[in-house]
Design a protein around this nucleic acid. Sequence first.
DNA 1: AGAGGCTGCGAAAACGTTTTAGTGTTGAGA
DNA 2: TCTCAACACTAAAACGTTTTCGCAGCCTCT
Lengths: 340, 340
Amino acid sequence: MKKKMTIKEIARELDVSISTVSKAMSNSSEISQDTIDKVQAFAKLYNYKPNNIALSLKNKKTKNIAVLIPEIVHHFFTMIISGIEHKANELGYNVIVCLSNESFDKEVINMETMANGSIDGFLLSLSKDTLLKKDFHHLREVINQGMPLVMFDRTTDEIYCDKVIIDDARASYNAIQHLIYSGCQRIALITTEDYISIGKLRTQGYVNALYDAGIPLDEDLIVKIDKDDELENKIKDLFDNQQFDAVFGVNELYAVVAMREAHNRGFKIPQEMSFIGFSDGILSKYAYPTLTTVIQHGFEMGEKAAKMLIDRLEKGDDDSSYRTEVIKTSILQRESTKPI
Amino acid sequence: MKKKMTIKEIARELDVSISTVSKAMSNSSEISQDTIDKVQAFAKLYNYKPNNIALSLKNKKTKNIAVLIPEIVHHFFTMIISGIEHKANELGYNVIVCLSNESFDKEVINMETMANGSIDGFLLSLSKDTLLKKDFHHLREVINQGMPLVMFDRTTDEIYCDKVIIDDARASYNAIQHLIYSGCQRIALITTEDYISIGKLRTQGYVNALYDAGIPLDEDLIVKIDKDDELENKIKDLFDNQQFDAVFGVNELYAVVAMREAHNRGFKIPQEMSFIGFSDGILSKYAYPTLTTVIQHGFEMGEKAAKMLIDRLEKGDDDSSYRTEVIKTSILQRESTKPI
DNA sequence: AGAGGCTGCGAAAACGTTTTAGTGTTGAGA
DNA sequence: TCTCAACACTAAAACGTTTTCGCAGCCTCT
């Protein structure tokens, strides 16, 4: 086990001062070419690499950013992380991943343990719990300490900071419009409870699209899911009690499970019943039939969020000109809807 | 924006020495209760938190561990990460996620940038590229520097270190046995090329199970996939040219795609044809019909790997008594196989 | 009253680096 | 020969901690 080389070691071995070594390593013009060569050769030989922690302490920069998300076992979030990691690496940053598991407490703890010098900035998507509690003091605290924070996907209006979001209302509007154009009239909606901003916005898009198309809104066609374990039963209820010719699910799971129920009940898809999901995951891609879906471009969202954070870190424009970037969605037509 | 509180600040404000503050914060017996109270009250008031970087430098410990994986957009890997994160957090460590994207070069670069003080140890699953090249110098280097390394899932025999693996051969043996017990005789195998140790081992389990059951091996029933984009065609070829009553896929995607092809060709599942996949992802769960699958317990694997690494970090038993832990698999019977 | 032992605190080193502000030697110009 | 600049290098501070050692002052024994 080789001992770790430090500048100090090199200085001692080469019988020069610490400062000389440091400057030689950075090709400073203060140092003679002879010395530079000597030092760099020695450093290379012994595989010297500057200690990152020492650099961080000196520069007050860690080149680390934290991304705090509710869950990692979700295609959309992993795409976002991929995007973040990709962009961050490109710009010389490392990514520390923290999971809140949808818990307010864990979100707070994670932010506190990270905010003591370990990282330069935060990338955050709020937990359900936090959204419910509407308690954002931990975000305020971090921002007050001067640590940049960029929120993505699950955000709140109560905090002023950079944000990257999907235009959920529009995306959902487009999906419904797509169904209507393809000839559907009675469109069921499977969504989340309203405290998830995403569910609320997507519901709104649904409502607006129906309105603009002159189709009356039927509340009985809207199913709100709180916990995933009630999903199947609520969908069965829907099929038992209502008639409809299309289903829009605010995520791919909802759509796929509904599609399966339709399949079991002998509906022809998409001739008798059409389906659109949200978020282009593996489920949509390999469902039977394959699911038409709203693509959220998670990778791009991650890249953009990372870029916004790092820009703020490096440009340091604290002039609170916070921006909110909207990631466009698109519809990927597959087998579960009729061609327009 | 509040200025960051440091020990130095507190010392100055309270007109005591730096050492006194430090000791007071840790309730040292050297300091009078009066002073302790005074210091702690002040610290709390100004929300003092010790700077992690300074601590890292002093202690030569960062309380960070890196996990380097080939891909994050995979259910199995996200489960592993969840497990790692969970255990690491429990033990007071943060997790830095690095992605190699199956590239040897990125794996090397990631390890080098991490190994300069940023982390205390590595959790690693090898990239395909590295497995192909069989070049492990970067691992040796890291180990030589005295940095603990725990490999999981995709490992190599050429490197001595702690490992956590699935007993792939046995898992696959069990799956095939399951099919045989349920009455299947001609079982197709959809696997990866042999350089992926996982594909190789699972193939071996398949071979052994057939042998032990006295079923002759038919090489034509084995399909090897290299790139995912050739998957569908190779499966179609299989259906075109061979007859069989069961399919075992070495991951869930292979099994699901094959099942879909069977579905399209009108086979009754599982009566006429059975399917088993590997790794209990979302695809298996929501496939139609739901897919019987070998559960790998990724979360547990992550937890165990994290624990092994942290144990080594804290106990510091460098006596090279490297262990290899084997995570047991189990079979989750769903709709795609006949009950035994 | 002197020796010894607590008590409560401070000075300084150490972790590994960069950077600012010198310092000594050399050579050239006056 | 004196001065000044250029050159090549070094000393020391700084980043924020912890920890070892030392040192007063006071008390208690004998």
